[in-house]
Amino acid sequence: MAFSNKEASIVLGMVARGDKRHDIAAWFGENQARVAEVEQGQYGNVTAAPAAELPPKGAPGPKGRRLRSKVSKAVEALENKDAATALQLLKDGLADFSKNET
């Protein structure tokens, strides 16, 4: 799979931020060779995306597992008619997912 220009821009932004290459590749479901292609200019004159457009820093796998756990608990809370708990679990899960990690 090739990156779109927008994705290549995000890749460059993540590189500039200092993200690990394997974390960058994992965000897109790609291998590190695709990231290297972007860095080598194979996508033309693409500029790095600004920090506000970048996904949170860190490996997506652990973030996804934690988010999935919170969502599962939120669904259970909704099935038990506890909307307030469900909403808080979802907010907490999203906040945790959005944290930058080293």
Rank of each mutant, 00 (worst) to 15 (best):
Ser4Thr: 15
Ser4Gln: 11
Ser4Leu: 07
Asn5Lys: 14
Asn5Met: 05
Glu7Lys: 11
Ala8Gln: 13
Ala8Gly: 07
Ser9Val: 01
Ile10Cys: 04
Ile10Met: 09
Val11Pro: 14
Leu12Lys: 11
Val15Pro: 03
Ala16Thr: 10
Arg17Cys: 00
Gly18Ser: 13
Gly18Pro: 06
His22Gln: 03
Ile24Tyr: 03
Ile24Thr: 04
Ala25Tyr: 04
Ala25Arg: 03
Ala26Gln: 08
Trp27Gly: 00
Phe28Pro: 02
Phe28Arg: 02
Glu30His: 15
Glu30Lys: 14
Glu30Asp: 08
Asn31Ala: 00
Ala33Phe: 13
Ala33Asp: 11
Arg34Gln: 06
Val35Asn: 06
Glu37Leu: 09
Val38Gln: 04
Glu39Gly: 10
Glu39Pro: 04
Gly41His: 14
Tyr43Asp: 02
Gly44Arg: 10
Val46Leu: 08
Ala49Pro: 04
Ala52Asn: 07
Lys57Gln: 07
Lys57Val: 05
Gly58Ala: 02
Gly58Ser: 10
Gly64Tyr: 10
Arg65Gln: 14
Arg66Met: 02
Arg66Thr: 02
Leu67Glu: 00
Arg68Gly: 03
Arg68Phe: 15
Ser69Asp: 12
Ser69Ala: 07
Ser69Tyr: 14
Lys70Met: 01
Lys70Cys: 00
Lys70Asp: 01
Ser72Asn: 12
Lys73His: 13
Lys73Trp: 12
Lys73Val: 00
Ala74Asn: 07
Ala77Asn: 08
Ala77Thr: 09
Ala77Asp: 15
Glu79Ala: 10
Glu79His: 09
Glu79Val: 05
Asn80Arg: 08
Asp82Pro: 01
Asp82Arg: 08
Ala83Gly: 07
Ala83Asp: 11
Ala84Ser: 08
Ala84Tyr: 01
Ala84Leu: 04
Ala84Thr: 07
Thr85Phe: 05
Ala86Arg: 03
Ala86Phe: 15
Leu87Gln: 13
Gln88Pro: 00
Lys91Ala: 14
Leu94Ser: 13
Ala95Thr: 05
Asp96Ile: 11
Asp96Met: 05
Phe97Met: 05
Glu101Gln: 15
Thr102Glu: 06
Thr102Asp: 03
